[in-house]
Amino acid sequence: MYQAATTRYDQMVYNRVGDSGLKLSAIGLGLWNNFGSVDSLANQKAIVHQAFDLGVTYFDLANNYGPEPGSAETNFGQILASDLRAYRDELVIASKAGYVMWQGPYGNWGSRKSIIASADQSLQRTGLDYFDIFYSHRPDPETPIEETALALDQLVRAGKTLYVGISNYSGAQTKVIAAIFKELKTPFIIHQPRYNMFNRQIELDLLPELAAVHKGAVSFSSLCQGLLTDKYLHGVPVNSRANKATIPFLHPAQVAQTLATVKALNEVAQARQQSLAQMALAWNLRQPAIASVLIGASRPEQVVNNVQALAHLDFTATELEQIETILAKQPPIDWQAS
């Protein structure tokens, strides 16, 4: 029977989410990949156990994570039931609705119908009574933003989630929905944007807005699907994510486009006595609004290595200038490359 390490809180950093009362582990475990029906449940358990043993308390799901869609929630629910039920009050478990999940007009986007139904299904799959955070996964261009906000508010009032968040919303959209939540007194505390050294759009609009409304963030794609690691320094491994046609957002062409930049960044990381991945995670956490950075893992050792980023979160002005100089030389990346 699994028993969590008694030292699990000794080294982890916990950051407050905006001006809310909630703190998140600075490293969160994302279950987007490697937790589906096609993946080994034993390996999933080993990854989750290792994460919690190191003080990772934030676990991030969505209704459609898999494959098959929904299977990541089902598998995590099995791990909860068998191993983590006694630790439920030590965990922050999040899920989302907004991307296509089931057939027909109600299994997608941000209508009240879709969000409420999706949350109920997610609770059933995980076996939970409530989520700690439930997100609108993306803005719906055809549904009034008030309807999406009211649906999330209803989940709180029904006891199905403690807090609500949004993901992939622009700064302007965040300003609008934050005002609605403020009027409703909904515990809206967090935004989940894509953010890493190669994807910095949120610095222009979203981060200033989060500061203005006193909300926090947790970044996903923190390592740019593996580009900001040492995995591709010497080419594209056969079993890598970039070579898996079923996984979007990363292709061999993008590895080639970023190789010179990655090598230069790796030299800065080595001078800091960190891996490139560790430095990239620390770089994200330099932003005051970012309470946590999500990592993915295909084996427990990756969790161990990534959590070690917390041993060196500070940057000198020279290091930050070196990183900016390197990134400024990066040509535009074709994110649609295939």
Rank of each mutant, 00 (worst) to 15 (best):
I247S: 14
I247K: 15
P248Y: 08
P248L: 11
F249V: 12
L250T: 13
L250P: 14
H251P: 07
H251F: 13
H251Y: 14
P252T: 00
P252V: 00
P252K: 01
A253D: 15
A253W: 00
A253F: 04
A253N: 11
Q254N: 06
Q254I: 04
Q254A: 04
Q254F: 01
V255H: 01
V255N: 04
V255Y: 00
A256S: 12
A256C: 05
Q257N: 11
T258D: 08
T258A: 12
T258V: 09
T258Y: 02
L259G: 00
L259H: 06
A260G: 09
A260I: 05
T261L: 10
V262R: 15
V262H: 09
V262A: 13
K263E: 10
K263A: 07
K263C: 03
L265A: 09
L265W: 05
N266Q: 14
N266S: 15
N266D: 15
E267F: 00
E267L: 10
E267C: 04
V268L: 05
V268K: 01
V268E: 03
V268W: 00
V268Y: 01
A269C: 08
Q270D: 12
Q270A: 12
Q270C: 09
A271E: 14
A271H: 03
R272K: 15
R272P: 00
Q273Y: 08
Q273C: 08
Q273L: 04
Q273T: 10
Q274M: 12
L276A: 04
L276C: 04
A277T: 02
A277E: 02
Q278V: 09
Q278E: 04
Q278W: 09
Q278S: 07
M279C: 01
M279R: 03
A280V: 13
A280K: 11
L281V: 14
